[in-house]
């Protein structure tokens, strides 16, 4: 589903990705790990089509995420490490994701309830004004409701309490079949039961790529 071919990305003199090649197929559940500055976020952003590579390319189901971003992103769910300070109300944010990507609002509410987030009581509240945990729960609910073939999470549990983390992993377990699940994480123990592949990055390269049972 995702094919990264000899990808190099530089920011000025700094090489963030150095000739990286890898492939993620259906039912690959990957923990992407590495120290800060290893190139994990750059790799994710390249998959999402945010960065123009200096060399090499990324293909998602054979499509270029920069040139065919609408088709590619229709099939990707993404949750960033820190929820951005979006000023839209929850109602407006739900309209945005629903109209742009065809996400069912009822399904967002369903997953929000599963994450113990009372969304109905906060519909007119600005997303920005929700607590860190509530924001993260809503973004996770949206990502699950999108029903994408590729789910990318950049440290998604940073703001979640232990109970919410359990809810999150339970929902993920129920929804991971036939998908590519890509976790950026520093805490392997948390996702160990979910993943079947571990990739370590350092200084812009993949230093190890192991299948685990």
């Amino acid at each position: 589903m995702i094919k990264v071919n000899s990808l190099t990305k530089k920011f000025g003199q700094n090489i963030s990705l150095d000739n990286v090649s890898c492939e993620f197929k259906k039912n690959d559940y990957i923990a992407l790990m590495g120290a800060n500055g290893a190139g994990k976020t750059t790799l994710i952003r390249s998959i999402l089509g945010y960065y123009h590579p200096d060399e090499g390319n990324v293909l998602i189901n054979g499509l270029d995420p920069i040139k065919q971003r609408v088709e590619v992103l229709a099939n990707i769910s993404f949750v960033p490490q820190l929820p951005p300070p979006i000023k839209l109300s929850i109602e407006e944010l739900m309209s945005y994701v629903s109209i742009s990507s065809g996400i069912d609002k009822d399904l967002i509410k369903h997953y929000s309830n599963e994450m113990k987030l009372d969304i109905n009581a906060n519909m007119n509240k600005s997303f920005f004004k929700l607590s860190g945990g509530m924001k993260q729960k809503l973004l996770i609910a949206i990502s699950l409701a999108k029903k994408s073939g590729i789910i990318i999470y950049d440290e998604p549990t940073a703001n979640l309490d232990p109970k919410a983390r359990d809810d999150f992993y339970r929902l993920l377990k129920q929804n991971e079949e036939d998908k590519v699940l890509l976790f950026v994480t520093h805490r392997l123990e948390e996702v160990e039961e979910l993943v079947n592949r571990q990739i370590y990055m350092d200084l812009g390269t993949i230093t190890s790529d192991e299948r685990v049972s």
Binding site: L73, A74, L82, P84, I86, Y96, V97, S100, S101
Partner: peptide, 15 residues
Amino acid sequence: DNHILEYMLSFAISL
């Protein structure tokens, strides 16, 4: 700057 673009453009919206 504040990463709103990163999230909002992760949906199927053309530039």
